[in-house]
Nucleic acid binder design. Structure first.
Lengths: 103, 103
DNA sequence: CCAACATATAAACACCTATTCATATATCGA
DNA sequence: TCGATATATGAATAGGTGTTTATATGTTGG
């Protein structure tokens, strides 16, 4: 178990940073937040967020590679979901940080 | 109060994304993690992480602007600290996501 | 005031990445 | 199988960004 964050090895922090970087793009963050509400197809995400299906697909591939999103085929479409609940915690904590910061 | 993350306006998610983007750089993330252990001067951060003081100063300016870090003068050096506790939560949650993902 | 130290700032560069456009793959209905 | 739909992939590009180098600002002690 990890007691102090300072014990993190360099390559671990690199992986961590990669995760944060993925959430650091507005389009991708919106996609993740949309997925938190429940599984969605590529097309419905694109429509909701006014993004091209191609762009959404690109982003989803990265999110999948980082285990942030998972996918499952449903007919001719792909249903994407958020892989685990920690992502929701991460985002909610950051929302609190931002809203508290607003004086 | 915010019930669902999907209620976030576009400009709010943009601010959120900016926060994540800041943690998305390895050097900056290491700086933040180092600061979680307690206040540090620019020079000591640079020494600890083997980064140039100039680079550390650059990053700290961005972290300050995002209210992730705060600073206070102590003699001729500046003591930097993490602004609030949510940042620690965010990072710890992400650590859990990453370590769980490793099968 | 002056030298030494600590931090900040500015410009420049190399690298990365988000987006678009075009094309490919895959699934279903007829 | 064929056309239509849904998603994925590849190349190309424009804009952004981390890092370095050089210089400036500010603080302490003499």
């Amino acid at each position: 178990m990890l007691k102090h964050l300072t014990q993190l090895a360099d390559d671990h922090t690199a992986v961590l940073a990669d995760m944060f970087k993925l959430l650091g793009d507005p389009s991708r963050l919106k996609i993740v937040i949309a997925l938190l509400d429940g599984p969605l197809s590529v097309g419905s995400i694109a429509e909701r967020l006014s993004l091209s299906p191609s762009l959404v697909s690109h982003h989803l591939r990265l999110l999948r590679a980082a285990r942030i999103a998972s996918h499952e085929r449903r007919g001719r479409q792909m249903l994407y979901s958020v892989h685990d609940h920690h992502i929701r915690c991460v985002i909610e904590d950051m929302v609190e940080h931002v809203t508290e910061g607003a004086d």
